[in-house]
Design a protein around this nucleic acid. Structure first.
Length: 296
DNA sequence: CCAGACGTTGTT
DNA sequence: GTCTGG
DNA sequence: CCAGACGTTGTT
DNA sequence: GTCTGG
């Protein structure tokens, strides 16, 4: 639930999808710090590099709180004080952090930085709240930016499939407040982090389970057919075709167009089908299938 | 004082 | 069972 | 998050 | 780096 995602927009598409209005009300696009480190995928797992939107003030103290930048960061926070020479030596899972305890956790506590992570789904990105840090490897290699996604109790609608969900910032105002660390400290900003109902979701194929798979099949809705195997519906096939064949230009294009409506309606967000499928399978066949009841 | 930890999810 | 790699 | 490994010595 | 446990 909170450990896999997808971003199909390329660096420039992300940049345009992150269009915002500054204090003067002008439309702006955030600049990328390291766009080259990011690449889109239908299957983004912890440790992958993803687009993170944050206040320019993290880099330039005098800049306006309404100026944003994009930084490609590793999913799974490596705190600045981490002593080993490789991120993979982190013993603990820091891809998520619980909203209710993050202020007491040593790994997250004095991270000066609020962040927000931008993610995909259609033309409107799914904006998840997180925190980041910058770690300098002791061996003198390049600094690594990394982040963790905050989790909350599942909202009512989501609780039918899972008991936790990512903290989602629903709308520009919420995003702006979360990013404005100078005006609103983390402690305060956490108060408006809450489970949201305004979410669409659908089951997807177990193809997504293997993080090596990176095809539209990872995000396209499937029909949960309680009898027999699950099937890809006709409309899903259409969408899959569309995703597969859409020209390169369009891939990197965050601007609304005729097809975006389709995407937005059909896949505003997506979830692993496994838990839902379990319910189906157990009902149908009465098998408490051990394998499938594993964690997420 | 020093040593050692520093995390989440899910499942039983 | 638990850790690492994707 | 899930999938896949989980080991050593010696030889080609 | 900072906190907790001994």
């Amino acid at each position: 639930m909170c450990g896999r995602t997808a971003v199909s927009l390329g660096a420039d598409g992300i940049r345009r999808a992150c269009t915002y209005r500054d204090k003067q009300g002008r439309r702006r696009h955030p600049e990328w710090k390291n766009a080259d480190k990011y690449s889109p995928s239908y299957n983004k797992c912890p440790q992958s590099i993803n687009p993170v939107l944050l206040s320019q003030q993290h880099f330039e103290k005098d800049s306006s709180s309404s100026e944003y930048v994009l930084v490609a960061m590793r999913w799974g926070l490596i705190p600045a004080w981490f002593k080993e020479d490789e991120p993979s030596k982190m013993q603990y899972n820091t891809s998520n952090c619980r909203s209710d305890t993050m202020m007491e956790k040593l790994s997250y506590k004095f991270n000066k930085s609020d962040i927000e992570d931008k993610d995909p789904g259609g033309q409107r990105l799914l904006t998840m709240a997180g925190i980041f840090d910058c770690w300098e490897p002791p061996n003198g290699e390049e600094a690594l930016y990394s982040y963790t996604i905050i989790t909350v109790e599942a909202s009512k609608s989501v609780s039918s499939i899972h008991h936790r969900m990512p903290a989602i910032l629903d709308g520009d105002e919420a995003v702006g407040k979360w990013l404005d660390f100078a005006e609103i400290p983390t402690q305060e900003a956490l108060k408006f982090i809450h489970p949201i109902e305004n979410l669409a979701f659908h089951p997807v194929s177990t193809v997504v389970n293997n993080s090596r798979n990176n095809t539209p099949e990872c995000v396209v809705p499937i029909q949960l057919d309680l009898k027999k195997k699950t099937k890809v519906s006709a409309s899903s096939k259409m969408m899959m075709n569309w995703l597969t064949n859409k020209p390169k230009k369009e891939e990197d294009d965050g601007l609304p167009r005729w097809s975006s409506q389709f995407i937005q309606a059909a896949s505003a967000s997506r979830k692993t089908s496994i838990n839902v499928m379990n319910q189906g399978i157990e009902k149908e066949e009465g098998e408490p299938s051990a394998k499938q009841c594993k964690n997420q």
